[in-house]
Amino acid sequence: MSMSPFELHRPDDLLSAVRLLEKYGDDAVLHMGGTELLLLMKLGFAQPGHLIDGKRIADLKRLEVADDRLTIGAGVTHRRIERHRDIAHMMPALVSLEKAVANIRVRNAGTLGGNLCFAEPHSDPATLLAALDATVDLVGPQGGRTLPLREFLIGAFATALAPAEIMTRITVPLPRVGARVGYHRLALKERPTVAAAVVLDDRRCEVWIGALTAKPLPVPEAAAVLASSAGRDVTAAAEATRAAVLAVDAGEGDDYRAQLASVMVRRAVADAQPRLAL
């Protein structure tokens, strides 16, 4: 597995990075931890002539924890989130999720932004962050814009990222203090087989299923059941999830996958922990 040659560029700031991406167009790609990009390149699935290394751009590495939101630079590694004490305190579900991503080496190098931009259907973070309605900030030749992650993710390995655009940060609005957030996944092989993320708040609930479909799948019927029962009617939510998965997935083994999704929802609810104040 040898890689095709390329030229590595190391811009120190965002604007230079965007300009380089603009200059080389389709032949350039942003390079962060490399855990997914380099793998693809080694397998011959991508052969860019230019890699624009974003790791020297300080803006991409900022991580801020506020009362109502997490602002995570796209270049922050999984491991930094996993080991962040304040995040562990406020959002334990995010930390336990990060702990499950791939393996320690991948988490030490790989970044949250890279994970989301790669849009691998089995992404762990995408499911929970979609449930939390995170937004992503993008900067490109035409300036900046902010998109909900739910819109940013288009399909398997497909995002709304425009040419020469860079994801700069992920903003995770935190549910109010006391709301519960849970994530549960089952991985029968290297990558998760099925995952569920739930947000349980008085006024609004979210239920999202990951890894089964090209991008995280919302289950509003299950969310509605949970919202109307103050998070108690887990059985109905699980059944709603089963029905939703069966409806989108007519492939072989669908009843098992629907079963797993319904179980993951129940366990995510059981695992859900209250979001605490900073």
């Binding site: 490399g34 855990t35 380099l38 290394d53 320690i104 080496r105 991948v106 030490n108 190098a109």
Partner: peptide, 12 residues
């Protein structure tokens, strides 16, 4: 920190 040398650029 542990990393995989098989998927790390020397430049990195």
């Amino acid at each position: 920190q542990a990393i995989s040398a098989c998927t790390t650029l020397t430049a990195d």
